[in-house]
Design a protein around this nucleic acid. Structure first.
Length: 584
RNA sequence: GCGCCCGUAGCUCAGUGGAUAGAGCACCCGCCUCCUAAGCGGGGGGUCGGACGUUCAAGUCGUCUCGGGCGUGCCA
């Protein structure tokens, strides 16, 4: 249950009853927790319309609400604030309702079908730290949308069809020209085993990319190979299939280490067969125009403030642009899945590109009541504010980063007071490392550039993933001890202290935070509410000795409240793809 | 040049037009004979880049300005 919505309903009712528009009854969490838990500022806004002193309106509303037993206090303050706090009895009632429900009374929304495109992975290019954000933000948004009741289809949209494939093919040919894939007259079956390993691929692409910058002939060959691959040359296609397969296996391992997965591993190549139809549609609607040998579509609107260059659909050499592939992909998604929304979790820098693509898709009539949304995010920079580099100036592999953080978490686990087996330490280290990385990133608002600081990820102190896990582990340990001692839990009682009341209120606020996080596509909102809950619990835990509490009813209540908190932390961490280890 | 995004504590960042702008780190001081101290409490630290405007009320909205990042047709 969303308490803020519930209170808004109640207060709006009071406004209406007194002859004011109900819209003024909007309730927010109090900005002055020392004064009250919730507030309504509508009286001040209403004052103008009704030409009445705001304080007089607030007095009336407060008077009207005061008789409601669900409030412990309702006050009208100075300029026209309406301050209210929940009665402890109602709070306890809400806690027990949550504790007795699988979803902890968290809301479900009207289901929509949402396709989420994230990851940004390319064939033959290893994932580096720059791929982190799309993967974990996209994964979190998928989990959140699913949890709130939506039908979510995730698609990695693999970069498997562009120039980088031509570069890789050209480089393999340069190194191993004798392979049958390069013989245009070859008529036999192609080998079942790939001619390259992942490790070789990881060397081949950078080498090819570098070569193409200094060797014009090689660059031309790569471009030609790209076109020939797209035209279906048999040998290249067979080789491409191998490279793609080897690459995908490796990508799955790396994403898997982060707990990130995809429903579909479609690639740009899968959009290829839709492209002729896209171009046909554009041509029929007379949207195509020749420009410097390329075919373009004008996407500018008269009201645009920002410059909107034409979008190139067919390059002057006859090849497709990535935007064309994106259009083909939209057609495929709309036909196969009929989504209400398509989300693109992609770097800020492609904002203009997506604006063009979405407009072009609308012009072409590809969108059938489908909203396309670019969920942009900021660049990950190093401590110098420039794009992140390793000490020797190279790009850092995602697998290396995960390895470093996991190693450090392992050392920390080894120094723990808790005795753990070797195997357990490894499991804990993996879970803790991933949590450190994810929270370190997603605590920041997604649209901002942020500083990637390995040392901070390795700190495990304060506002970090491990803090959240530690809180959950503590709770689980407490509940296990209670079980051993046969101490039973029972109804959650009205709070006996400020810390306990704050814990209950923080649990109540989750139901409001999740839809907001989804509406804004902002994982940091989930993180914030997680720290609210975990912090409140840790204060409560410090103040109260739960297992040894002599009052049986109170002890039983505290155990239930602890269980509820643990379940809530589990759900919220689950939305971020973070596991709770058995020990820390 | 034009456009988009961002300037909040020493650092990294939150902040749904409302009351006294919050966290974490770092620094200083406390708390384990008692359920996991990867924890809890306290302290110092701010003209929210600047100016003007809208509003009963601006870190939040608008205009201008300074500083930084990014984008601006045949890579993705």
């Amino acid at each position: 249950m969303n308490i803020r919505q519930e209170l808004t309903k109640i207060v709006s009712g009071a406004f209406e009853k007194l002859g004011y528009a109900p819209e003024y009854g909007a309730v927010t969490v109090s900005g002055r927790p020392d004064l009250c838990q919730f507030q309504c500022n509508g009286a001040m806004a209403a004052a103008k319309e009704y030409r009445t002193a705001p304080a007089a309106i607030a007095d009336g509303i407060a008077e009207c609400l005061r008789m409601d037993k669900r409030f412990s206090s309702v006050e009208s303050v100075k300029p026209g604030f309406i301050n209210m706090s929940l009665s402890d009895a109602w709070l306890a009632e809400l806690m027990n309702a949550a504790g007795g429900d699988d979803r902890l009374t968290l809301p479900l929304m009207e289901p929509r079908t949402i396709v989420v495109d994230y990851g940004g992975a390319n064939v033959a290019k290893p994932l580096h730290v720059g791929h982190l954000r799309s993967a974990i933000i996209g994964d979190t948004l998928c989990r959140l949308a699913r949890f709130l009741g939506h039908r979510v289809i995730s698609d990695v949209h693999l970069g498997d069809w562009g120039l980088q494939m031509g570069l890789v093919i050209a480089e393999i040919e340069r190194e191993q020209p004798e392979l049958c894939y390069f013989d245009p007259d070859y008529e036999g079956d192609y080998p079942a085993e790939p001619p390259v390993t992942v490790d070789e691929l990881n060397v081949i692409y950078p080498a090819a990319s570098a070569r193409s910058k200094t060797d014009a002939e090689f660059a031309a060959k790569a471009a030609r190979a790209t076109v020939e691959l797209q035209d279906g040359r048999a040998g290249y296609t067979a080789l491409w299939r191998h490279v793609r397969g080897v690459s995908i296996a490796d990508l799955k391992r790396n994403y898997g280490a982060l707990g990130v997965s995809f429903d579909y591993w479609y690639g740009e190549s899968d959009a290829d067969k839709y492209i002729p139809r896209v171009i046909g549609l554009l041509r029929n609607k007379k949207l195509l125009r020749e420009s410097d040998g390329a075919m373009v579509v004008d996407t500018a609107l008269p009201e645009d403030k920002e410059p909107m260059p034409p979008m190139i659909v067919v390059k002057s050499n006859g090849g497709d642009m990535y935007g064309t592939t994106d259009l083909g992909t939209i057609l495929q998604r709309v036909e196969d899945w009929k989504p209400d929304e398509i989300w693109y979790v992609v770097d800020n820098r492609q904002a203009l590109h997506f604006k063009q693509v979405f407009r072009c898709a609308a012009l072409a009539g590809l969108l059938d009541n489908t909203d396309c949304i670019h969920i942009n995010f900021g660049t990950m920079n190093g401590r110098d504010g420039k794009p992140y580099k390793t000490r020797d100036g190279g790009v850092m592999r995602l697998s290396d980063m995960i390895g470093d953080v996991t190693k450090s978490a392992y050392d920390k686990a080894s120094g723990s007071d808790i005795a753990m087996s070797e195997e357990e330490k490894l499991r804990v280290a993996r879970a803790v490392g991933v949590a450190a990385i994810k929270i370190g990133d997603m605590l920041n608002h997604r649209t901002r550039d942020f500083i990637f600081d390995m040392d901070r990820f390795l700190a495990y102190e304060g506002k970090t993933g491990p803090y959240l896990q530690y809180t959950a582990v503590r709770i689980n340990s407490l509940l296990a001890k209670a079980g051993e001692a046969k101490v039973s839990s029972g109804d959650i009682l009205p709070p006996a202290s400020g810390a306990e009341r704050e814990l209950q209120l923080s649990l109540l606020s989750v139901a409001d935070a999740l839809p907001r996080a989804l509406a804004e596509k902002a994982p940091n909102i989930i993180c914030e509410v997680l720290f609210d809950v975990a912090g409140a619990y840790n204060r409560f835990y410090f103040e109260n000795k739960i297992l040894t509490c002599p009052e049986e009813g109170r002890r039983a209540s505290w155990l239930s409240l602890s269980r509820l908190t643990g379940d809530m932390l589990g759900i919220l961490l689950g939305l971020l793809g973070i596991e709770v280890p058995e020990n820390m």
